[in-house]
Amino acid sequence: MSVWRNLGERTVYENRWATVNMADVELPDGRHLDHTVIRLRPVAVATVVNEADEALLLWRHRFITDAWGYELPSGGTGEGEDPATAAAREFEEETGWRPGPMRLLLAVDPMPGISTSHHRVYWSDTAEQVREIPEDHFESQRREWVPLARVPEMIARAEIRSANAVAALLMLHQQRCVRA
């Protein structure tokens, strides 16, 4: 089996959110190359699907890509924090809705060739609105209940661009289709 081997890393930048390292990688043929590695803490992601098969999404602008799109509430998991608890916390802070019991939907590594950004996506089928304006209202321009039936066309039109949202919403859409 041919594998790339990480022979060691040196840190080139670090803050509380990310560490950027340069790795000395040995390729299967023996050659070496410097490879950038971005180490991030785990991400907890959440959504709620209501009785009408609608998912609560955020509409927001991302300055890095200069693009608008629908996303799922998400954030970093604190040291030793249960990812399901982190997902529920982020959901409430960003939407103003407190989700019911969270269930793991999927785990995804959006960019495994360069980053350790491990995302765990949770969902619930119940939620209670606990505030009209979310605690983190600045995170999105609006919050919207979107029918799962619209998800494939929204992805095709690049209205949903975030990898964790695309994967999770397609999975929830597929489950809805199987149920129907």
Rank of each mutant, 00 (worst) to 15 (best):
R98M: 02
Y122P: 05
V48N: 12
N50C: 15
A55I: 06
T77V: 09
V121S: 09
W97H: 11
E94S: 04
T95A: 11
R62S: 07
T85Y: 04
L106N: 10
A107M: 10
L58R: 08
A107L: 08
W59A: 10
V45S: 05
D109P: 02
A44H: 03
T65P: 00
E94R: 09
A127S: 09
E93V: 15
A44Q: 01
T77P: 00
L72F: 00
R60H: 10
V49E: 01
F63C: 09
V130K: 05
R120L: 14
E81V: 07
P110M: 13
F138T: 03
Q129W: 07
Y70Q: 03
A55T: 08
A107P: 07
T126R: 14
E54N: 03
A67H: 04
S115W: 05
E128C: 06
R62A: 05
W68M: 04
G80A: 12
T116I: 04
R62E: 14
A107K: 13
W123D: 11
E51Y: 00
T95D: 06
P134T: 04
R120Y: 13
T77F: 00
W123A: 12
I133H: 05
G76W: 12
I114A: 08
P73N: 12
L57R: 01
V48K: 14
P112R: 04
P83C: 04
P73V: 13
G100A: 03
H119N: 05
A46Y: 02
V130P: 05
F91N: 00
H61D: 06
P134G: 09
D66E: 09
H137C: 02
D82A: 07
E79A: 15
Y122S: 06
E51G: 07
I114Y: 03
P101C: 08
E79F: 15
S140K: 10
V108Q: 09
L104P: 02
P112Y: 06
A88K: 01
W68L: 00
P99G: 02
M111D: 13
A86G: 09
E135Y: 15
T126G: 14
M111W: 12
A127D: 00
P99M: 03
W59M: 10
D125W: 06
M111I: 09
Y122A: 05
G100V: 02
Y122V: 07
E128N: 10
L72E: 02
E93L: 15
G80K: 10
R103D: 03
